[in-house]
Design a protein around this nucleic acid. Structure first.
Length: 268
DNA sequence: GCGACAG
DNA sequence: ATCTTGTCGC
């Protein structure tokens, strides 16, 4: 459940179960709880070829547009792994989603869920390893964020369908990809001062930006996922980097996923 | 054929 | 990502 490092606060404004229920992005669980609804549901292929094919079909649904003008809730999502209790068994993926108020950045909600992760890590197919756990976590979220940040690429992916883009289409919300290293694309050297950024290109197309979030510290790779654009993604990412290299939502999600201890009965 | 390669 | 303690530096 919630990581005890955080103090969950009540929202200082109107965002309730009623609101998400009316938005159409919610569903009611058997136990009565109103939580987020996954807008696009699909099976998780175990075959790399089918996975790549699915990315191409999802690409047609991707929309690159400016972020919403009013942002009150921002979420960060991250996944950690835990070695199986017995060797030779499938690894466990632990997904965490932390919702923060914006611009205060107070923790509003934390959800952690674990699932088996049979799909191996393959560059370009990261979503098929982390996606199942992330979807399970999103289905328990009781607050609908205005934008979600992921620890990986969005548009800056060989097929333009990095984990931020893929998940954005599944939850039908604005998303941003913020990766710690490069997957593809080329770029000029990034000025060493905080706030500097250069374009990340793939051929003649600009697919994202390399952003210096801390002076003298390795830059991060930012690219829009779904319903967001490059400029807005870079600007918001910088606003979310208060004292560290990574934006606060992702840092907190990373921490939450790492310390979560799943009980035997709460994994798929 | 030889590298590169999110987490 | 994960296996892992201490340690160098701002």
């Amino acid at each position: 459940m919630a990581s005890k490092k955080f103090d969950l606060i009540p929202l200082p404004f109107e965002t309730s179960s009623l609101k998400i229920w009316l938005s159409g992005l919610a569903k009611r669980k058997p136990n009565g709880d109103v939580v987020m609804r996954i807008a696009f549901v699909h099976d998780w292929p175990q075959d790399p070829g089918l996975a790549a094919g699915l990315q191409e079909r999802l690409k047609e649904k991707q929309i690159i547009v400016p972020l919403p003008g009013k942002i009150r809730l921002i979420a960060g999502a991250d996944t950690s792994y835990r070695r199986p209790l017995q060797s030779g068994v499938t690894a466990l993926a632990v997904a965490a989603i932390v919702v923060l108020s914006f611009p205060e950045l107070q923790v509003v909600e934390v959800v952690c869920r674990a699932t088996a992760a049979p799909f191996p890590y393959v560059p370009g197919l990261l979503t098929f390893r982390e996606g199942p756990a992330l979807v399970k976590a999103f289905e328990e979220l009781t607050h609908i964020p205005d934008v979600v940040l992921f620890d990986g690429q969005g548009l800056a992916h060989p097929k333009g369908m990095g984990i931020a883009a893929h998940m954005g289409i599944l939850i039908d919300l604005p998303t941003i990809g913020c990766a710690k290293s490069r997957l593809c694309g080329v770029h000029d050297p990034v000025p060493t001062t905080k706030g500097s950024s250069v374009c990340l290109r793939h051929g003649q197309e600009v697919i994202g930006a390399v952003v210096r979030t801390r002076t003298g510290v390795k830059p991060v790779y930012v690219s829009p996922g779904h319903r967001s654009d490059i400029e807005g993604s870079v600007a918001l990412t910088l606003e979310l980097c208060r004292r560290f290299r990574l934006p606060e939502p992702i840092r907190l999600a990373h921490h939450a996923a790492g310390r979560f201890c799943p009980k035997p009965d709460e994994m798929a």
